[in-house]
């Protein structure tokens, strides 16, 4: 995290007190800031010029016009505020990513039951804004990209939600900390040696590893074979009774092990393990993971992969 000046730190602390982090934040007067935009200033300037004109020409209608502009500005304060007030921001889902690349966080923007909110702009500082409108009683979701600068939990900066609707004369905004973080997996780094134990072969992936119930071939029927394993199709084709052979699933599960990478930097070890998780998943091979304090039993599938990566991402993270 870049170093902050004293003023910035003070500002952050103040903001934290005023809008404490929460996963759901409904914007209200405490949380909304409002100031005129540049056009708002131009608008007021014109009102002031008309006022001076009205005074000099002793023209009541020019004065009235000037008062109208001022009064419209005044009304716009309320309407701009109203457009933002009552909006509820909630932390939604999270799309994890590899450290050094991008992840995404979902933000839910919902309106109260009676009031619609038009043209709201959402952004993290420094990234492009997203515009949306929410109708009364409805909810909009948007994914905002987040740069994953380190492994583990990457906390999002405060989201800036801004609205200038209806007249663009004022800008109402709030900076909301949804206590939202994105999981950053280790950056996968290729390594030749598979840090694995178990399986048919400890050497690595060169010899294909059998899955627990992978069909391996046919052999002649031996009395005692399970009826379910008989290949009825070959009998139908008059090739005699044959039995389907599956590779033994019970033993030989592959464990990716932290300890096998002794002598490497911890981050490097994680990166290497990460790469192997990805490659084994790609190859549709079951695998387990054993870290010093935790382990995941060998399995396969998307959920398993996610769980494993999560473990790698959060290893050693408070």
């Amino acid at each position: 995290m870049p170093k902050l000046s004293a003023v910035q730190q003070l500002y952050r602390r103040w903001l934290r007190r005023r809008i404490p982090p929460a996963t759901t934040v409904t914007l209200n007067q405490r949380r909304i800031f409002i100031l005129p935009t540049g056009y708002g200033m131009l608008f007021l300037l014109i009102a002031a010029m008309l006022f001076i004109g009205g005074i000099n020409y002793e023209n009541n209608l020019l004065l009235t016009f000037s008062f109208f502009l001022m009064s419209l500005f005044n009304v716009a304060i309320l309407h701009t505020f109203r457009n933002l007030s009552g909006v509820t921001l909630s932390a939604g889902g999270m799309r994890a990513g590899f450290s050094g690349r991008h992840g995404a966080l979902e933000v839910l923007v919902s309106a109260g039951p009676r009031r619609s909110h038009t043209s709201l702009w959402l952004q993290w500082p420094g990234s492009p804004a997203r515009e949306m409108s929410v109708k009364a009683g409805e909810e909009q979701r948007t994914w905002l990209d987040i740069e994953l600068i380190h492994r583990g939990r990457v906390f999002a900066e405060r989201i800036r939600i801004e609205s200038r609707y209806p007249l663009g004369l004022l800008r109402a905004w709030s900076l909301v900390d949804l206590d939202h973080w994105c999981l950053a997996w280790p950056t996968p780094i290729e390594s030749a040696e598979c840090p694995a134990s178990g399986g048919d072969d400890d050497e690595g992936l060169h010899n294909s590893l059998a899955g627990n119930d992978d069909f391996d071939g046919l052999r002649s029927y031996i009395p005692g074979d399970s009826l379910r394993a008989i290949n009825w199709k070959s009998l139908a084709a008059e090739r005699g009774l044959q039995t389907k052979v599956f590779t033994d699933p019970a033993e030989g599960r592959r464990w990716l092990e932290w300890d096998r990478l002794a002598g490497m930097e911890p981050e490097m070890r994680l990166s290497s393990l990460c790469w192997w998780v990805l490659s084994l998943d790609e190859a549709n091979q079951p695998y387990g993971l054993r870290l010093p304090d935790q382990e995941v039993a060998p399995a396969i599938g998307l959920d398993h992969k996610q769980q494993t990566l999560r473990l790698l991402a959060l290893f050693g993270v408070q």
Binding site: N60, L63, T64, F67, M70, L72, V75, A76
Partner: peptide, 16 residues
């Protein structure tokens, strides 16, 4: 908006 701006406008007209 215009209608809501009117009361204040009239008030300012009277007192400014």
């Amino acid at each position: 908006l215009v209608a809501q701006a009117f009361p204040l406008m009239i008030f300012l007209f009277v007192v400014v």
